Amino acid sequence: MTQLIVEDRIARPAKDVFEAIVTVEGLSGFFVERTSAPMVPGTTVTWSFPHADVAFDVEVGEIETDRLVSWTWPGGRVAVELRETGPGVTALTITERPTGPGSEGAARAVGQTQGWTYFVCTLRAYLLHGLRHFGLSDGIRATLVE
């Protein structure tokens, strides 16, 4: 099974990182343009990305306060794990298991690498500098060629 893992650290406590990911204010500050509700286990929320004319439902999975947020969205299952590695420093591990056979799943994982890099960079800019969405693009493409 294809699996994509993106890891990074942010110089903020896990509580701050967690709140940015699960709240409407946080998510709409750095990742989605709009979300219909906060991330609560067992619920479905709608995320909108108007710059790409896309909106879809996200099924919220397991959530552990300040440690884990998981969801299923079109094409895969995502888990964001948080771990404080020092005073005020949080390590993030984002794991996505894209669906699709063979190279289709691999190609999706390659494309998602860009998306998760954007997620981490904008989360950092939001938490450390108060910057909201800086330069959304629907033109970046990644292609897996066999």
Rank of each mutant, 00 (worst) to 15 (best):
Q3H: 08
L4M: 11
I5L: 10
V6D: 02
V6H: 02
D8F: 01
A11C: 10
A11T: 14
R12S: 06
R12T: 06
D16M: 08
F18D: 01
E19Y: 05
E19A: 15
A20S: 10
T23A: 04
V24A: 08
E25H: 11
G26M: 06
G26H: 02
F30N: 01
F31T: 02
R34H: 12
R34V: 07
T35P: 00
S36E: 04
S36D: 02
S36R: 03
P38L: 10
M39R: 01
V40R: 03
P41G: 10
G42H: 10
G42V: 09
T44D: 12
S48G: 05
F49D: 01
P50M: 12
A55T: 11
F56V: 00
G61D: 03
E62K: 12
I63C: 11
E64D: 13
E64P: 02
E64G: 08
R67D: 07
L68M: 09
W71S: 01
W71P: 00
G75H: 06
R77D: 14
R77M: 11
V78T: 03
R83M: 10
R83H: 09
R83Y: 03
R83Q: 11
E84I: 05
T85S: 12
G86Y: 04
P87R: 09
A91V: 05
T93W: 05
I94M: 03
I94H: 00
E96M: 14
P101M: 13
P101E: 15
G102K: 08
E104R: 11
E104F: 09
G105C: 04
A106S: 11
A107K: 08
R108W: 05
R108Y: 07
V110W: 01
V110R: 04
G115K: 01
W116M: 02
C121E: 13
T122L: 06
T122H: 14
T122E: 13
R124Q: 09
L127M: 06
H129K: 15
L131Q: 14
R132K: 14
I140Y: 13
T143A: 13
T143R: 13
V145Y: 08
E146D: 12
